[in-house]
C-alpha cells in the first residue's frame, strides 16, 4: 500500500467530499458560528484594556502602559486571527472514525489500496472549503463592528500566516488521528478527545495571547504542540512582533511545527499499523 495517493485520486476524493459537504452547508455555517469563543475573549480583554484598571492597580508586567503592551485594536486583530486560524485547523476525524468503526464501514476502507486516513484528510479539506465563505462573513462582520482593528497584513506575513495555518491543521489532524487510532482498541476513544480538548482550549492561545502567560508557563507550553495550533498562526496573521521579547520567533515557530510533523507522522503510522494488526486479529 503506497502512503501518498496519486494526484488523480486526491482530486476525485476532494471533489466528491466537497459535493457531500455542500449538502450540509447549513450545519457547517452553524458550526463556523460555534467558534465564537475568541470573540467572547476579545470582549473581556478589550474591556480590561480600555478600563485602565490595570494601570490603576499597578500592573505586574508593564507598570502603567496598555495591558500586555497591546492596544485594544491589537487585541481585536489577534482574536479575529485566532478565530480564522481555528476555523481552518479544526479537526473532527475522531468522531467520524469512531462512527465508521462502529458501523462497520472501516473494513471495506481497509481493503482499498489507499490509506484510509487520506479519505478523512479529503473530507476535512472539503469541509474547510465549504466553511470559507461563512468564516469570511463572520470575520467581516466583526471588522464592521470594530473598524479600527482592520489592517491588511503585509504580503509576506499573509503568505506565512496561511502556511502556518496549514501546518497547524496538519499537526492537529495527526494528533487527533492518534486518538482516533485508539478506536482499534477501545470502542469509545472519542471520550479521550475530551481530555485533549482541555489543554487545547487554555494553552493554544484561544482564550488569551501567549504574552499573558507568566514566563515559566510560556516556556512550558512552547514544549507542547498546543500554542502552534492557534497562537502562532494567529500572531503571524495579525502581524504581531516576532522574536526578542515576543513569545514566538518566525523561524523558530515554523521550525517547531515542522519538527512536530516529523515526530507525529511516523508515530501515527506505527500506531495505525499496530491497530490494524489487532483489528484483523479480532476478526472484525
Amino acid at each position: 500500500m503506497s502512503f501518498l495517493p496519486p494526484l488523480r485520486v486526491a482530486r476525485t476524493l476532494w471533489t466528491v467530499q466537497f459535493a457531500y459537504m455542500a449538502e450540509y452547508r447549513a450545519e457547517i455555517a452553524l458550526w463556523a458560528l460555534s467558534g465564537v469563543l475568541p470573540f467572547i475573549m476579545f470582549g473581556l480583554w478589550s474591556a480590561a484594556a480600555a478600563d485602565g484598571s490595570a494601570a490603576a492597580h499597578g500592573s505586574v508586567a508593564g507598570g502603567g502602559g496598555p495591558l500586555l503592551g497591546l492596544s485594544a485594536a491589537e487585541f481585536a486583530r489577534y482574536f479575529v486571527c485566532a478565530f480564522v486560524a481555528r476555523q481552518f485547523s479544526v479537526v473532527w476525524v475522531v468522531w467520524q472514525f469512531e462512527e465508521d468503526a462502529l458501523e462497520g464501514r472501516l473494513s471495506p476502507y481497509l481493503l482499498q489500496p489507499l490509506h484510509p486516513l487520506w479519505r478523512y484528510v479529503a473530507a476535512h479539506l472539503a469541509e474547510q472549503a465549504t466553511r470559507l465563505p461563512f468564516a469570511l462573513v463572520i470575520a467581516s462582520g466583526f471588522f464592521l463592528l470594530q473598524p479600527q482593528a482592520f489592517a491588511w497584513p503585509a504580503p509576506g506575513r499573509l503568505l506565512l500566516g496561511v502556511l502556518s495555518v496549514g501546518l497547524a491543521f496538519a499537526i492537529h489532524f495527526l494528533l487527533q488521528s492518534l486518538i482516533a487510532t485508539l478506536c482499534f482498541w477501545s470502542e469509545r476513544a472519542s471520550a479521550l478527545e475530551r481530555l485533549f480538548y482541555v489543554p487545547y482550549v487554555f494553552l493554544s492561545g484561544l482564550v488569551a495571547p501567549l504574552q499573558a502567560f507568566p514566563p515559566e508557563l510560556q516556556r512550558l507550553s512552547l514544549h507542547t504542540p498546543f500554542p502552534y495550533l492557534i497562537g502562532f498562526p494567529a500572531q503571524v496573521l495579525a502581524g504581531m512582533p516576532m522574536g526578542g521579547e515576543a513569545p514566538f520567533s518566525l523561524a523558530g515557530g515554523l521550525a517547531a511545527m515542522v519538527l512536530w510533523l516529523l515526530l507525529l507522522v511516523p508515530a501515527l503510522l506505527l500506531l495505525w499499523r499496530a491497530g490494524v494488526r489487532r483489528y484483523s486479529a479480532m476478526g472484525a
Binding site: 480590561a48 484598571s53 505586574v60 508586567a61 499573558a212 502567560f213 507568566p214
Partner: peptide, 8 residues
C-alpha cells in the same frame, strides 16, 4: 492571568 495584570 487577568488578576496578575492587576485587572479586576
Amino acid at each position: 492571568l487577568f488578576h496578575r495584570q492587576g485587572v479586576a
